[in-house]
Design a protein around this nucleic acid. Structure first.
Lengths: 123, 123
DNA sequence: TCACCAAGTTACCTAGAGGAAACCATCATG
DNA sequence: CATGATGGTTTCCTCTAGGTAACTTGGTGA
């Protein structure tokens, strides 16, 4: 195993953090983890997500092998997106993060409150 | 527990993803997990990190209660940053992500290669 | 013929993140 | 007196992510 260098874009840590740090990518993986879905359905399901960004995000997720795209020759053609086994393993891991957040959010909020109050005194 | 809404900035999921998606924040947590460190030492340790962003990132991490700041009245004054117990639990969780990345990077790279080759054919 | 669905692409614009580098205060040393 | 260390703040500038909205392609039905 090479010494991973987080500054290099090729570092796997950076790759996964890029995905995980992307709000829409996480949301998409979460939705698709529940079952396959078509393009416009995803758009309606995830409020606030524009066509452009949806298209971009789906592409990069597909490129990473986390989701797969299947064009079905209906008329008009429908395109179904589904999560891959690889994508499944990632959502499982991201879930650990979600659980951390739900477990510790109170502590974070308390810390923020204290910090802000202390800052208010100084100002 | 309320139904967490990932669109709201108050959603804990978004909060933790904001931190985790921040390259420098993750790097800082990683370094501080190994032991306390002073400002300028951090700057030298983490190549490419500007003073401004270091300062900003340390502040937000401190505000979230993930690290703590201690000014020591030496001369010139030294400021020591260290990870909190709360921060420790987060780094442990983020490690799961790092492990996912190291475990599955090969699959992702293969997927990307296949995707790019297929795209090259179409073009 | 016109209108409408699908799934995108493209052009345009703007706000914000982040880098570079200068500036600040304090004290000690040469 | 000037320089260098400490730990920052401030200004300026650039670059890109992402939003809006219009356009595309192809086929179907009114």
């Amino acid at each position: 195993m090479p010494a991973w260098n987080p500054y290099a874009s090729a570092c796997p840590t950076r790759l996964v953090l890029d995905r995980v740090g992307d709000k829409w990518a996480v949301l998409l993986l979460g939705v698709l983890a529940k079952g396959p879905m078509r393009f416009n359905r995803l758009r309606r399901e995830i409020e606030g997500l524009s066509q452009k960004v949806l298209s971009q995000t789906l592409k990069s997720l597909e490129r990473d092998g986390l989701i797969s795209r299947k064009a079905i020759p209906t008329v008009p053609v429908t395109v179904e997106y589904s999560i891959t086994p690889l994508g499944q393993t990632l959502t499982a891991t991201v879930d650990a993060l979600r659980i951390w957040a739900e477990t510790h959010i109170e502590e974070v909020l308390v810390a923020q409150k204290q910090y802000d109050e202390a800052a208010a005194l100084t100002a």
